[in-house]
Design a protein around this nucleic acid. Structure first.
Lengths: 219, 219
DNA sequence: GCAAAAGTGTTATCGATACACCCATGC
DNA sequence: GCATGGGTGTATCGATAACACTTTTGC
């Protein structure tokens, strides 16, 4: 192992985003132990010495949501001495995007887990509120120059649904025609030829994401 | 302190950029001890338990260059088990930008330190080459949507010097008239009214950065 | 007077924005 | 037939990109 007094606790915390009811929501876990017992916190935990950071974040996401293979990106590392009252713990924060359909019957009925709207978060443990805010800003910024929003979409989706995702994250309405113009000639989106009927109005075209679900820089 | 086996070494490494001879250069340190003894590496080291990550990076920058108060930004954290043969060490990488005039008579004559062009790096210790490449990409990306390049400029500078900084980092020539149009109406740049005479040609106007040396998002 | 870098405007093109009405369906 | 959300096109504006010659100085 390594010399001198630079031994510290190493953790990852994951800001897991989804969208439900026109709300951008974050997965929170109620803490059972001290410190901050009873407070809501991000899912996370200590990183075992033989596990890569990405793998650890991915595993924690899987343990809490049952979901694997979704978009996951390192956000920032937080290491203020004093951010954890037990001693020096560096948290490598990640954020993840999960399409709501992949959360079907999971994480409900468990009162230790909650999907809370980013606009109405309770008091969070540690510096987790700050982490959530940073993640939200990063996500919103990426909407402008990448196709990252597709990570929230399921197998098939309508353009109105996609627009709603943008509006929810950005917190502002977008022009329908301009939005569709922009998005229809993206190479990563494809018309399935199928139609979605819902309610008493005209059916909507269904689209799908082509091939890779890679996040690409556009523009 | 913190429970269980998640104890690891915590380090910071800093990619210190400067520009000299139309080259983007990185500060490297020759390693004396194992592992990678004799190899070139980024300046860095273990983070004491009571020091913030930013402070540690800033201190390491200061120790090697004598420079303080320059632009410094967290880049990414690297934690592959196996990236350090001694055991698990997580490195929180930073990058810093130093105007060449602030390096006047420092870091020369010391054959354990070198400012190497990013285009001709020797073999580096650990995953440091990867870190340098990531930092370079981040820096180049930020040229497009921020005024970060001003961090390389001294007290007063000509527009040709500034353009040269852009061209050096991007690795491609820019149109002089378009460049000046863009940059002349930035609020953060100001004509000093002074002139710079060098060689047998027309003198150049000298500019300065106004007020804050904050990096701002532009466009 | 010549070499060397500083300085300067116009035009064309592209992308972004603003904006309002008809369409298909369920009830 | 009416309420609901789905779907479409054009005109304007501003930003970007391409492009070449004159000016000032030192020698």
């Amino acid at each position: 192992m390594v010399a001198d007094g630079a031994m510290t606790g190493l953790a990852t915390d994951v800001v897991v985003f989804t969208i439900r009811d026109q709300c951008l929501r974050v997965l929170l876990v109620r803490r059972s132990g001290e410190p901050f017992a009873g407070h809501w916190a991000l899912p996370g935990g200590m990183v075992p010495a033989d596990e890569a950071l990405d793998d650890c974040a991915s595993r924690m996401l899987g343990e809490k949501t049952g979901v694997r293979g979704v978009y996951l990106e390192q956000l920032y590392s937080f290491g203020e001495p004093g951010r954890d009252p037990r001693g020096r713990v560096v948290s490598v924060a990640y954020y993840a995007l999960v399409p709501p359909e992949r959360l079907a019957r999971f994480a409900d009925g468990d009162d230790q887990l909650a999907w809370m709207p980013t606009e109405a978060l309770p008091e969070l443990a540690f510096d987790h509120r700050h982490i959530v805010e940073l993640a939200h800003r990063r996500l919103a910024a990426k909407l402008d120059y990448s196709n990252i929003a597709l990570q929230f979409m399921g197998e098939r989706f309508t353009l109105s649904e996609l627009q709603s995702v943008y509006e929810t994250i950005l917190g502002e309405p977008l022009d329908k025609r301009n939005f569709r113009k922009r998005v229809r000639n993206l190479p990563c989106i494809e018309d399935t030829g199928e139609w979605f009927r819902a309610g008493k109005h005209r059916p909507a075209r269904l689209f799908r994401v082509t091939r890779s679900d890679r996040v690409e820089i556009i523009k």
